[in-house]
């Protein structure tokens, strides 16, 4: 019976959606419940009184804003690094002929074969050696190392979609190589650049492990580690503050995602479809 199949399919899909959406829902609900309502049994599904006191406390009494700023600087700088290096690298991998080009492209992916835990210790030693330990820069560099290979491959497939003739035409029309790159290639690459930037930003924004190991000063901690160490101790978890912080941490991503969703999905498809 196609009708029954339809029903079962819908049921399965919706229960999956609920399964994934429920924690998000609970996070938002908890963040606006007053302290008194938090641990009531049976729990209230919708808060009886809505309060923003946790948000206010978070912003006024904790270093949340500093962590937020650190995260913004960290994710933005990483994205800038990765996109500019990735674009130029992809251009080289696609447009220039040199010995070992393909090997190089494969080698770049090699870092993915190793678990990040294996890379952390050498990275930490390196950062100490060059005097960058405990700085945002060390995290920016670390995030760049694991975001760049993927960005390079993503941008490479976008770059392959830009016809070579366009660049030749710009050169004949009087542009320099960099001029042709700026005037003709970059605009064509824009969807690729945007989706690469999004991937990188999200990756860097959510990253926890490197931040935990490479940075232990509270002054430069990003949101992920900062909020955790601030609100979770061995004896107590500040649930309401934690949930409010979680909502505010997710907000930038959700906003960006909503606006640039179509670019992101085109990025997912870029590897598979070639013109």
């Amino acid at each position: 019976m196609p009708r029954a199949r339809h029903l079962i399919l819908n049921l399965v899909t919706w229960s999956l959606v609920l399964l994934i959406a429920f924690p998000l829902f609970w996070m938002i609900i908890t963040s606006v419940k007053p302290q008194s309502e938090l641990f009531r049994i049976p729990p209230t599904w919708l808060p009886e009184t809505v309060t923003f006191e946790h948000y206010w406390r978070l912003l006024s009494e904790t270093p949340f804003l500093r962590y937020f700023r650190n995260s913004v600087v960290l994710a933005t700088t990483t994205t800038l690094f990765v996109v500019s290096l990735g674009t130029l690298g992809a251009y080289s991998l696609v447009r220039f002929n040199y010995r070992g080009r393909e090997t190089l492209a494969m080698l770049v992916l090699f870092t993915y074969l190793l678990p990040s835990v294996v890379l952390i210790i050498p990275l930490y030693m390196m950062m100490v050696a060059i005097g960058l330990s405990n700085t945002l820069m060390s995290l920016i560099l670390a995030h760049t190392t694991f975001a760049l290979p993927y960005a390079l491959w993503l941008l490479r497939s976008f770059m392959e979609g830009v016809p070579k003739d366009l660049e030749s035409a710009a050169l004949v029309d009087g542009a320099t190589r960099m001029g042709a790159f700026r005037d003709v290639i970059l605009p064509q690459l824009l969807p690729g650049i945007i989706s690469t930037a999004l991937f990188t930003f999200i990756l860097s924004w959510n990253e926890y492990l490197y931040a935990l190991v490479l940075v232990n000063s509270d002054a430069v901690a990003p949101l992920t580690t900062g909020v955790m160490s601030m609100l979770i101790s061995a004896f107590n978890i500040e649930w309401s503050l934690l949930m409010a912080a979680s909502v505010m941490m997710s907000l930038p991503l959700i906003v960006v995602f909503a606006f640039l969703q179509s670019y992101l999905t085109s990025g997912f498809g870029a590897g598979g479809v070639k013109g």
């Binding site: 016809p163 003739d165 009087g174």
Partner: peptide, 14 residues
């Protein structure tokens, strides 16, 4: 190419 005072029409139009 830009300094040769030539113009080119491509098969793909470009």
């Amino acid at each position: 190419p830009g300094k040769r005072d030539i113009a080119m029409v491509f098969q793909s139009y470009a």
